[in-house]
Design a protein around this nucleic acid. Structure first.
Lengths: 208, 208
DNA sequence: CCTACCGATCGGTAGG
DNA sequence: CCTACCGATCGGTAGG
């Protein structure tokens, strides 16, 4: 449960806290990759260790449990999503501009950490206890804020009236979230191009 | 690998082929539910058996392996998706009407078998061998056909020009596919309402 | 940070 | 279709 750092001083007093964090980060990255390729349950701590050049038990010097690996991944995505929304909503402009900013910021977040987002979406059900509750609550808050913007957009004729703003918000976020499944970094599209296509498709282009 | 039916004649000659198929179907439904709730790897044959009122080994009288359970689920979704697209493209009407039909038919398919689709999307990576290849190939064909419609729609000014038709197709299908994640049968929305909201959001309403 | 290893789980088989 | 059970895997600990 508790972080392991206190019990894992460097072997010979030569390595420092920064080295610990660097390796810990590498382990988390390796975990995201393994869970992305094989799923949380099928992916093993041994595979993660191999990717970082450690023995399997060595993982436990840096992280308390396999569950903790998934928890950190989920909390990272949770943080990325709120940060993206925060940036989008703090930008200046009218409601349509805010919607555009949401699309752009969230698309960029998904593209930037595609594999981490994929693990988050696919392995949500494997989250346990407080983490599950926190992430669920944060997602609800996130949705509520986007729904508010969608509702305002309907009032201003930037989105079609006569439909639940919740459905419109889920539609827009679905379009954006789904990027994690088809985006390829080697492809011709950049995050900006994709976001702009979404914006035009939704009729949110500036001056429309 | 081979179906088990030939080796599993009814215990006392009383039950017939229909009973076998009924139970087999129940097992597949139970598997979809268990894999939906717990994931493919974490979900056990014991849990599936319990849901159908059988012992764990009894599962193997009806299905050859745990992998076969996932395979059948994936092939069912594969079939549902082609059938939906087939219906959409065989309907009369112009390109915009065809796009509307794709949105409506696929949304209805996803809503109807929400959990099965969720397992398909989340556990794709666990598919093995020929099944994986077939499903991958079918998905590619599916996409190519939707991209064709999207491209034609651009030519006819039913979708915005200046963007890759692939990105537009992924955007529309993402919106629709994501329904598996938020749709609740107890909610106020029917599949039709959702599809109509998508259509309006995309500016595809008839006569626009 | 490693080697050795335990405890538990689980897919699948045997044999009836 | 059941009971009994095997073989293998894996998360995590011990002890250094």
């Amino acid at each position: 449960m508790a972080a392991q750092r206190a019990e894992t001083a460097a072997p010979s007093g030569e390595e420092n806290l920064a080295a610990f964090d660097v390796k810990r980060r590498a382990i988390l990255d390796g975990a995201a990759e393994v869970f992305y390729e094989r799923g949380f349950t099928a992916g093993t701590t041994k595979e993660i260790a191999a990717k970082v050049g450690l023995s399997q038990p060595a993982i436990y010097h840096y992280v308390g449990s396999k569950d903790a690996l998934l928890r950190e991944i989920a909390l990272q995505v949770d943080k990325d999503l709120s940060a993206a929304l925060e940036r989008a909503l703090s930008a200046s402009g009218d409601t349509r501009a805010r919607l555009r900013a949401i699309v752009t910021e969230v698309t960029e977040a998904v593209v930037l950490n595609r594999k981490t987002f994929a693990v988050y979406y696919k392995e949500f059900h494997a989250l346990q206890g407080e983490t599950r509750e926190k992430v669920t609550a944060d997602e609800r808050t996130f949705m509520a804020r986007v729904v508010n913007v969608a509702s305002a957009a309907q009032d201003e004729d930037a989105l079609p009236k006569g439909h639940s703003p919740l459905v419109l918000a889920e539609a827009i976020l679905g379009m954006v979230s789904w990027v994690h499944r088809w985006y390829r970094p080697t492809g011709p599209q950049r995050a900006d191009d994709i976001a702009q296509a979404f914006i035009d498709l939704l009729g949110l282009r500036d001056g429309l």
